[in-house]
Amino acid sequence: MKKVNPNIDKNNKVISLNGLKKSFDDFDVLRGVDLNLYQGENLVVLGRSGTGKSVLIKIISGLLKADEGVVNVLGSNMNRIAGRELDRLRLKIGFSFQNSALYDSMTIRENLEFPLVRNRKELGRKEIDNLVEVVLEAVGLSQTINQMPSELSGGQRKRIGIARTLILRPEIMLYDEPTAGLDPITSIEINNLINEVQTRFNTSSIIITHDLTCARDTGDRVVMLLDGQFQREGTFEEVFNTDDERVKSFYNYNFIK
């Protein structure tokens, strides 16, 4: 069980969603979602596969557009900004993809450099090398720097993916299923890494998962997405302290005893 981060600033909303709706063709995925993410907080979004968790964070990072509702990220309305402004905001948001999304054709070094080389043109070779070393050290994979992504294990790829987003020092981290497809021990390591990132880099994070261990160990607060809306909200215990069958079955399935 995670100790709630004492540095959460409840007066500072880094993300706020109001009445967010999104459908594909005639399928309503998100049906009016309201959510606040506070400065310094790790917020876990739980939900079964296909409930629209990935869609939610893709809307937050501007990869998808909401059909209805207000999406406010770091003071900017995502529905209103585009081009340069959107790019500038995106540099403050780190996105850890479900499959890590490392660039297959590049080495680990080139993967990590990519966001820097493209967005921080003022940096020299030495500064770039330094920054690469710092994030590689932070995820504990300094020795892989010259390898190709295909040579790494799933857990290592996840770490490199997280390192690649950390290199721009984002204020917000979005983790899409950080432990999916990993063995239990590697999962725990990733959970610890998520908490380390929170304190060391002062990030506010949304962690999307259907893994209850991950939710329990990384979340300061947990919300549960059911039928396109957030039905439960609170600490891990509070969320599962209910008679709602849908919630209970989710719990029982995860912790088969």
């Binding site: 893709k58 990072s61 501007g62 990869l63 790019d87 500038r88 995106r90 540099l91 948001i93 996105f95 993809f97 479900q98 499959n99 999304a101 490392l102 660039y103 297959d104 990519f114 966001p115 493209r118 967005n119 690649r164 987003t165 721009l168």
Partner: peptide, 11 residues
């Protein structure tokens, strides 16, 4: 999702 990854890193 490498294409998405590029987009969110402002490329």
């Amino acid at each position: 999702e490498q294409i998405d990854a590029m987009e969110v890193s402002a490329t």
